[in-house]
Structures are given as C-alpha cells and as structure tokens.
C-alpha cells in the first residue's frame, strides 16, 4: 500500500527535474552564444545606406561641403588626439592612402571629435596630414554617422553609399582593398 503513493508523487518530481534541466540548458546556450560576441562591437545600420552629408569647418580655413565630393570615393575618418594608440597607429596609413589615391578620384576626410583645437592641430602637424580635416565640436556629424568611439572609418562609394565601416585602427592595406574594389567596380558597388 505504501509503494503506490510514492510512485505517484515521484512523477511530478521527474518532470520538474526535466523542466529545470531544459531551462538550464537554454540559459547555457544563450550564455555560450552571448559570451562569444564582443559587447563593444555594434553593427552599424548605416552600411549600404546613403552617407549623411555634412559641412565641415576645416583646420586650415574654409569649409568642406560633402555635396562637392559627389562622384568621388570618400574615406571618412573620425579621430581624436587623445585616442592613443589607435588613432596614432592609423594616422600614417590614412595619409599614405590620400597620397596614393588622391589623383584617382578618392578623397580622405578627417573629422575630429570630442577634442580641443590645440592638441588636434598638434596631432595633424605631428603626422603631417594634408587631407581635408576639420572639427565637429557639437558632435552632430559623428552622431549622424552612428559613431560610438574613435577611431571609426567609413568608406563611401561614388554614388554616396556607405560600403564599409571599420572600428579601431585601420591599415592602408584594409583601405586599399576596399578602394581598389570600388575603382574596379566603376560608379557603383562592390
């Protein structure tokens, strides 16, 4: 007589155990998937979309209106003088790309953000950067590009579409491969 109720009561216990194991397995799966992702890597919804236009007051006087760059391949680089070492690492690479491709319809534009005038100018002098460079003191341009840190670099095709976004120090090889693909591909993509 005593055996029957024992069997009856152990059934829900088994199901509870199964349910608990299933929940634990699901949580573990989510954790395994989640921990493999870089929490700082934010996918940009802007890639593939039209690049926001802007008017940038330049360090060496005058302003740059991106409407004047239509039909050109544009590399937009967001940087700051306090961004060490990444911005310091990529600065010579950007200058090299500008020198190599400026005669082939490619422009590099530097947008200095969250910075001060004096250290920004010292940075430009130090790396002898000659491509158009200006400050975005209100942060409107950087927010328009969904920038969340420096450095970030966007490659814009001749049709004004963002084709790539690079977070962190970019190298001349990375940029050259994107630019070469665009030059080969004509006015459009890759």
């Amino acid at each position: 007589m005593a055996v029957a109720p024992q069997v009856k009561s152990s059934r829900p216990l088994v199901w509870t155990g199964v349910a608990a194991a299933a929940i634990a397995a699901a949580i573990l799966l989510v954790l395994v998937f989640g921990l493999q992702r870089d929490p700082r890597a934010i996918p940009s919804p802007l890639v593939g979309r039209q690049a926001p236009g802007f008017i940038l007051p330049l360090f060496d006087g005058g302003t740059l209106d991106t409407r004047a760059l239509h039909g050109k391949i544009v590399v937009v680089n967001f940087w700051a003088s306090w961004c060490f070492p990444a911005c310091y690492e990529e600065a010579p690479h950007l200058q090299r790309i500008w020198e190599r491709y400026r005669g082939r319809g490619v422009t590099v534009v530097g947008v200095n953000i969250q910075d001060q005038d004096k250290p920004a100018r010292e940075f430009l002098d130090r790396f002898r950067q000659t491509f158009p460079n200006g400050m975005d003191p209100s942060g409107k341009i950087s927010i328009d590009y969904g920038v969340y840190g420096v450095p970030e670099t966007f490659v814009v095709d001749r049709a004004g579409r963002i084709v790539a976004k690079h977070t962190g120090a970019v190298t001349k090889d990375q940029l050259a491969s994107k630019i070469e693909a665009l030059l080969r591909g004509g006015a459009g993509a890759p």
Binding site: Q114, S138, G139, K140, S142, I143, Y148
Partner: peptide, 10 residues
C-alpha cells in the same frame, strides 16, 4: 560622457 552630453543637446 561627452558623447552623451552631445546627444542630450541634439
């Protein structure tokens, strides 16, 4: 953060 302040302003 400065970016947050700029966002608030915007």
């Amino acid at each position: 953060a400065e970016l947050a302040a700029q966002m608030r302003m915007l």
